[in-house]
Simulated assay, not measured.
Amino acid sequence: MSIGNSPESPEDDRNFPADDRDSIGRALQQARVAAGLTVEEVSASTRVRVPIVHAIEEDDFSRCGGDVYARGHIRTLARAVGLDPASLIEQYDAEHGGRPSPTPAAPLFEAERIRPEPRRPNWTAAMVAAIVAVVGFVGFTMFNGNDVRGNGAVAEGPAPAPKATTTPAKPKPARPADPKPVPSESAIAAVPQDKVTVKLTATDDKSWISAKAHDGKLLFDGLLNAGESKTFQDDERIDLILGNAGPIELYVNGKKIEDTFESGQVERLSYTKGDPQAG
C-alpha cells in the first residue's frame, strides 16, 4: 500500500506542461556556433561589447541598461547570426512583461538653461560721468560770463546779402549693392580644424543619446525629441551611444554621415578630428 503519489506519477506532467522553446540566450548561442563565429567576431561586427554578448547568451539582460537597449542588442545579435529578430523580441516581451508604455520625457531630460547673473551697477562709471558733467557745466558758465562782460553792446553790421539761387545738383546714380555671399550647403561647414565636432538631429522620432569626451567626461545623457539637435565638441574624440539610431541625422566635422541606421537599433560610435570615415 503506497501513500501519496510517486515521483514518477504521470499527474506531474499534466500539471506542469513544458515549454520546449529554447531561451533567447541559448538560441543566439547555438546560432552563433552553427555559423562558425566566435563571441569576439560577433562583438566586432555588431559593436556590442564582449561581456554583454556573454551575458545575453546566459539570459542575463541586466547589463544591457534597460529594456530598450536589451531589445536593440537582441535584434542586432540575431541579425549577425542569421536568426529572425521578430520572434526573439516577441519572446523577450512575453517574458519581461511586454513593452512599457511611453513616459513623458520632458520632465526627466529637460535641457539645462543658463540663467544670466544680474548685473551690478557700475558706480565708478557713474561717478566719472557726474564729475565730467559738473566740470563741463562750470566751464560753460564761465565762458558765457566772460563773453557777456567783454561785449557790452552789440554792433550793428551790414545786412546779410541775399542768398544766391543755386541750381540743384543732379542726383547721383545709386551704387549697386554688393552681392550677398551664397550660403554654404552645411550650416556647420566652417567647424574648428583643431577639434572634433559632432551634431545630432532627431528627425521624426525621439532617441536616447549618450555623449562622452575622450577623458570619459559625460557631455550629455538624455532624450533627444523629434526636431531637436545637439552639438558636441572635444579636442580629441567623442564617443556616442544612440539608443534608437533610426531617426538620427549625424554630422561629423561638418560632413553628413551616410550610414543608414534602423529604428530601435543601438549604435556605439567614436569620432576623432580625422573623421568622418566608415564606422
Rank of each mutant, 00 (worst) to 15 (best):
V48W: 04
R49T: 14
V50P: 01
P51S: 11
I52C: 07
A55E: 12
E57Y: 06
E57I: 08
G65D: 10
G65W: 05
D67V: 10
R71H: 04
I74G: 08
I74P: 13
R75M: 15
R75V: 15
T76C: 14
T76S: 15
L83C: 03
L83Y: 06
L83H: 04
L83P: 00
D84H: 13
D84Y: 12
P85G: 09
L88M: 10
Y92D: 07
Y92Q: 03
Y92I: 01
A94C: 05
H96C: 01
H96V: 00
G98D: 04
P104R: 04
A105Y: 04
P107Q: 02
F109M: 06
F109V: 08
E110D: 13
E112T: 12
R115V: 15
P118T: 06
R119W: 04
R120H: 03
W123I: 05
T124L: 02
T124I: 02
T124A: 01
M127S: 03
V128A: 01
A130V: 05
I131L: 03
V132D: 07
V135M: 13
G136V: 09
T141H: 12
T141Q: 14
F143I: 11
N144C: 09
N144I: 09
V148C: 10
G152A: 15
A155H: 14
G157A: 11
G157W: 10
G157R: 08
